[in-house]
Design a binder for these strands. Structure first.
Lengths: 327, 327
DNA sequence: CTGTTAGCGCATTCAA
DNA sequence: TTGAATGCGCTAACAG
């Protein structure tokens, strides 16, 4: 591969001159520039991004770390990040945290390959995150709280969301409500559950632990949890699934057992994924402002990059989307 | 930020010794290594990835360029790439080509920031792609054909897919079949159409141009095209949508007009996106082996990186998925 | 086993 | 306007 050296040589100028010419500096005469540009084209010269980043110690790119690049859930979030990053002349790369400490994600996190990072990946440990946090390296974390002066949080108000969803069911007249939970170590899940129990309490209902099932945030998990509930032969009147995937799994379980939603039982989800609108019956759920989360996150990164002070916590609220799974 | 220099100084060793110790070379005594590691921890040292990549002139990462990171369509593909890359100890980053020549994608393509690239992004021009192709820089292109000795193609057999889909409709007894096409500049679309007309010809049917509508590969486009077809008051017996998104848009148009699928008209899509299974009626479609495309692509990149000769064209076949939208 | 040294490719002084 | 020289942070060859 041709380097700038070769270009300079071919053009018959010094390296620095070539560099100036290629970077559109005005310190170079038109004729010289033309010579250099032509030489570059002839050699099919491409600059080495690393070398230049190394020199300027800035990459102009930010990374978005997701636990699973292929999850459809992230679409909106990515779009939010993408839009704002592009608008500010920054590049965005997405990488997956699959592979744990050996993953691409960790490499980018620790090795200064980017100017800032947004993390939404439960399999990146708190420890690694904290180790990477440092002055001048903005870190936005979306799915947990970390105590560190260089870490900023953007989160959805899960407690309020859980509360609103539950209150909605209660207002519809339901008294016996089950909760299908996500992984027990999920921060999001805990907060949604907190909102759930708060709403029950506020309405003088008490929660029966037999109606808390574990579903792991997966469709399969929701399916299994629901099957168990059905097997118990003591169905609640309504179910709050801690996310839509599990609710969709539940829908399938009910269908297989000839139980009609929402005639026999009402269900509500959380997230408002794309599929929620298409399943039968369409799923009533709490919509997360995913695009906004993404956009705000990058925005904060830019502010920090500029050395501005920002708060450490941002909370966005959720919105009830009424569809057909609650009667 | 601490550099390896600082670490070496604190540990009281030479820079190279520190480097060896940190890179788990066995050229260093246990005690020295311990000293160095401790110094590194104390200074919160993180190596600068660029500098090391620059030195080794290898990045161990490959890039996947997509026109839209947020498209659910890509899930499977990404997973295929991810799995194989990880298994080979390589990192994967995904970047979007939104922004054209200024996009992140182009930067990665041209500036040697990665060891290899997979492109599935119609908005990256052929010109840019060709400019980037060079020896020792494997380039796999998924959505078009380019004449260049350093470019390898992996494609789905769209002609066969189009043929199979159409033949299926014909075998069901349909004679009047419309085609809702993707963008006219889409290579994929052209090939599917070719398969479509081939199948008609093989069955002595002739194609009427009034039954070729344009839908742009979007749901909205499929919806509009279908509305037009309905407005013509001369419906075909079946429709072949060049992708699932458009078919889903069509489904909606039919529903709004009280036309029942598949009772009044049969439709078939192409791609087998996740949603296809969930719409009502569920969509009969041609499944693309997306995971396999991804996996094969990276695999080829590794072979090229190792200097092995590989073919320039790979074609994977599609598979008919029978569901409920064809009677 | 450890230290010295020479670049990787580029941007950027500082003199000329 | 140009060119020679310097160093970003790191690795690896070599010498001790």
């Amino acid at each position: 591969m041709a380097t700038i050296k070769d270009v300079a040589k071919l053009a018959g100028v010094a390296i620095s001159t070539a560099s100036y010419a290629l970077n559109n500096s005005n310190k170079v005469s038109q004729s010289t520039r033309k010579k250099v540009v032509e030489a570059a084209k002839e050699l099919n010269y491409q600059k080495n991004g690393f070398a230049s980043d190394l020199k300027r110690s800035r990459t102009n790119t930010i990374a978005l770390i997701l636990s699973d690049l292929s999850g459809p859930y992230y679409s909106e979030l990515i779009k939010g990040v993408q839009d704002v990053a592009t608008a500010n002349g920054y590049d965005l790369i997405a990488c997956s945290s699959i592979g744990g400490p050996q993953s691409t994600a960790v490499k980018f996190l620790k090795e200064k390959r980017v100017d800032g990072v947004i993390i939404l990946a439960h399999n990146i440990s708190d420890e690694i995150t904290l180790e990477s946090a440092r002055e001048g390296f903005p870190l936005v974390v979306l799915d947990r709280k970390l105590k560190n002066e260089f870490v900023v949080h953007v989160e959805v108000d899960n407690v309020q969301g859980g509360y609103t969803a539950t209150e909605y069911l209660i207002n519809k007249g339901y008294r016996h409500i089950a909760y299908v939970s996500g992984p027990s170590n999920s921060h999001d899940n805990m907060l949604r559950f907190e909102g759930f129990t708060n709403a029950l309490k506020a309405n003088d209902l008490n929660f029966q632990s037999k109606w808390r099932l574990s579903g792991d945030f997966t469709r399969e998990g929701g399916y299994r949890a629901t099957k168990m509930l059905i097997a118990q032969r003591d169905l609640p009147e309504a179910i709050f699934y801690a996310n839509d995937e599990m609710a969709i799994g539940g829908l399938q379980a009910f269908k297989e057992n000839g139980i009609s939603v929402p005639k026999d039982i009402s269900i509500i989800g959380f997230d408002d994924i794309q599929l929620a609108e298409y399943v039968i019956p369409s799923l009533t759920t709490m919509k997360q402002p995913k695009y906004e989360v993404g956009a705000l996150s990058v925005h904060l990164i830019f502010q920090m990059l500029l050395g501005e002070k920002v708060n450490h916590n941002y909370k966005l609220s959720t919105e009830l989307i009424e569809r057909d799974s609650v009667r």
